[in-house]
Design a protein around this nucleic acid. Structure first.
Lengths: 335, 335
DNA sequence: CTGAAGTGCTAAAAGGATTTAGCATGGAGA
DNA sequence: TCTCCATGCTAAATCCTTTTAGCACTTCAG
């Protein structure tokens, strides 16, 4: 593989100066160059397969066409990696690349990841969290910063899922299908703390608003802060003992998984005897049988939007991304 | 935030030349500089919070301390993102950063992702696949390339899980605990095609070798190429109808998930009535109850090893990474 | 006493792109 | 005829770091 062609090589071949070549290739607005020259430049560049040297360009421009992505554990866990896909998609569309770094949520590691990105002269920075929480990010003046699925106390621009609407729609979906005796598993005061979640409150509020609109309340609610299958299993058992329901809303898919297990043990068939709706759309949701109807956390779109905001600059304080309903087989319409 | 200090700024403050500063900070071996000068340089650098400009350095050196990672869908799916964690860990230890790009397994997209990385002057490239398959990667002379969880027809250096040993150990684990009547679900001739998998053959061979060592054979095997819960469910039903077993080896965790469902329906309790062992260690494995004993695909370590090989240069043709046994609750020792 | 070797440091070039300032040329207007 | 302006292009500076070549001085060996 021959050495990479430089601007000077192109200029020589085209019989013009590097200045001219640069101007043509960058299509500078106010440079009145002849169409003939432009044509020769383009031909020469193509012939030599010219690629601008990013280091040289970065040195001169102070821009690197690079965006840094720092996350608590988005990259490295399985839940939220769709966020990266969104970031990468947009970056590629806009001819940027993405530098990735992990850091827990320990402030010092965040700071050092950030420093790394700034050292590398990233043109912008996206912070992404797996769960929508509040984080402290050092404020930086130089480059645009956007938080994806997170909020900061300092009011940095952020992208969050529209949990209120999702909560509303989840409940509405059941109500619309005639359900009136509905239980909820996973209510927790503790989760209203922004350190743990900045969106759960909206999820609750959306659910409650939908029920209120129909003039009803949950027939039973199970408190629970740790949203794992255990909670769903025990919670569903509690529901079955206390009252009769036609539907259960689970705080997330893992809780719903537990509900499935409890239902099966009790001989209840989903969705014939019990409808289930939940939140998140983890991959688990499509493995269950019947597959789970759930409100998706839009990691992909949050990634896309965050990247767009960073690249466009001047992002608004808060951007909400819709959580689409994944309609599958766990809900039955009552006649 | 004041403008970033340059080498010249440091030199001025230290009362020395940029040359000297560069030599001190890079600790060049054969430059006999006074300890006094070195001390002054370090003090000045610290005071100005000097960070070398990576673009300038990259321009001069032709190195970027950057490694490109191209994958089919490792980043963007949930299964294998631990590989990235491994890559990032090692990169950080060695003061490198990772550029990430996705591309399906379509040759043109791979080529363009590769071109992107070379454009950006990556010092090395790692290709990572979610499932261990064969891919065609254009051979490049300039930079080291390592395949992680993949093999190429052209014999590029690769890192693969040690499936033979894993197969052997999985079977051995059951045999050691007194199991003799064992079924296997997920045998498939078709999967021996390297386009679909380059490791399944070894997995089978390891299983067979362990049984052979004990002088027995599987009491029943279920063929199946698509390793989803359906196969496990139907396969287990088939096993139960045909014969009596004390243990089932599932081709992967999703198949095992189906086995769990079939067992539960039939009133068999795991591990009391039926032991289950499988492969992969997806996160599903720890959600099942009882949790699944499974041979882990070592994505993290494959990532680490691949990055180390790229950074060290001159990687061997094939490196095997052990697949650790995740010992959980799905196996019972027969008295 | 002279030449060689060693010491501690620096000037200047190189790396490849972008950008500012400005050089010829030709035509239009006075 | 002379000035002015537009046109089409280029020389040279700039971004920041690394590296080569070498300067000026001292010490040592012969």
């Amino acid at each position: 593989m021959a050495k990479r062609a430089t601007l000077t090589d192109v200029a020589r071949l085209a019989g013009l100066s590097p200045t001219t070549v640069s101007m043509v290739l960058n299509e500078r607005p106010n440079s009145r160059l002849s169409e003939d020259a432009a044509e020769r430049v383009r031909a020469a560049a193509a012939k030599l397969n010219y690629r601008p040297n990013p280091a040289a360009r970065g040195l001169r421009l102070g821009k690197t066409r690079t965006v840094g992505f720092i996350s608590d554990e988005v990259t490295i866990t399985r839940y939220a990696s769709a966020m990266i896909r969104g970031l990468l998609e947009v970056a590629e569309e806009r001819d940027h690349t993405v530098l990735i770094s992990e850091s827990g949520r320990r402030a010092d590691r965040i700071a050092s990841a950030l420093e790394l990105m700034l050292d590398r002269q990233a043109d912008g920075i996206v912070f992404g969290l797996m769960g929508a929480k509040q984080i402290d990010v050092p404020v930086i003046a130089d480059v645009p910063v956007v938080l994806s699925n997170a909020r900061s106390a300092s009011g940095l621009p952020c992208v969050l899922p529209d949990e209120f609407r999702a909560g509303f729609e989840a409940a509405h979906y059941l109500l619309e299908r005639g359900h009136r005796r509905i239980a909820f598993i996973g209510r927790s005061e503790a989760l209203l703390d922004p350190v743990l979640s900045v969106t759960i409150g909206a999820r609750y509020a959306g659910l409650d608003a939908a029920l209120a609109e129909s003039g009803i309340e949950f027939v039973h609610q199970v408190d629970g802060r740790f949203w794992e299958p255990d909670l769903g299993y025990a919670g569903a058992q509690e529901v079955f003992q206390r009252t009769e329901v036609t539907a259960i809303i689970a705080a997330n898919d893992r809780v719903a998984f537990g509900v499935y297990q409890a239902a099966q043990e009790r001989g209840l068939r989903i969705p014939d005897d019990l409808s289930v709706v939940s939140f998140d759309d983890e991959y688990l949701a499509s493995y269950l049988r019947p597959q789970l109807t759930t409100m998706q956390i839009p990691y992909l779109d949050m990634g896309r939007v965050a990247m767009e905001l960073v690249l466009d600059g001047d992002p608004p304080t808060e951007t909400l991304v819709p959580m689409p309903l994944q309609e599958r087989g766990s809900v039955r319409a009552l006649s």
